[in-house]
Design a protein around this nucleic acid. Structure first.
Lengths: 106, 106
DNA sequence: TAGATATTTAGAAAACTATCTAATTATCTA
DNA sequence: TAGATAATTAGATAGTTTTCTAAATATCTA
């Protein structure tokens, strides 16, 4: 499972949240997604990469297209983490700077 | 209420998540908080500012100290947003780039 | 297989973020 | 009021992120 760090970074960008919103409705190719934004293909590709690195989406090639879809299980894990973080008096994960298993990402 | 954009940016940083974790246990002054990290006072101040800009914490002066505490209501709003975002088939807020009321933050 | 279409990779520029030291502001107390 | 303590603001720098154009890769189809 991707680190919660990557997930939170991924969803802290409005473009990427909108991508996820679109994918929640139905899976789409990179090009179809891009048509919803005012940015170049490579920029879209960069954002899709971050979502993929966070494991929030998965891809499969379909002919010339690469189709993106939501990775439901990671979505649910992330939800659980954030809910805990905001609702508990004491959060589970140590969000600290000292250690992290997945070694300090950025 | 602070924009969800600012909230998500605020919690996408591990230092700031740890600050929030500490404050969940008890309110603390800037200096007490700083003692938990290996960064300078001004850097801590910078992070506290971001948390404050997101309205996740509030401050009150107590003598020479400035005491930080969790802003419970915003915490709960944020939780609700994120839960919706991750659980709904269709998220409520338009996380898009085109408009936003609170005008494009970054 | 040549050309068209879809997407990613490379490399560079601009904007933003985190960090630091030095200086400033606010408050307390002897 | 002078000096000490707590915190923030100013200004600089290093690193990261977002964005772009150009080039490369993969697949389809005539």
């Amino acid at each position: 499972m991707a680190s919660i760090q990557k997930v939170l970074e991924a969803i802290s960008d409005p473009t990427r949240r909108k991508v996820l919103d679109l994918l929640k409705k139905k899976e789409m190719s990179a090009g179809e997604l891009g048509a919803n934004f005012d940015i170049s293909g490579p920029s879209m590709s960069h954002h899709l990469n971050k979502l993929k690195a966070a494991d929030l989406v998965q891809t499969t090639r379909r002919g010339q297209s690469i189709v993106y879809s939501i990775n439901t299980s990671v979505f649910e894990d992330a939800a659980q983490f954030v809910v805990k973080f905001f609702q508990d008096t004491r959060a589970t994960e140590d969000a600290g700077n000292d250690h992290d298993g997945e070694e300090q990402d950025r």
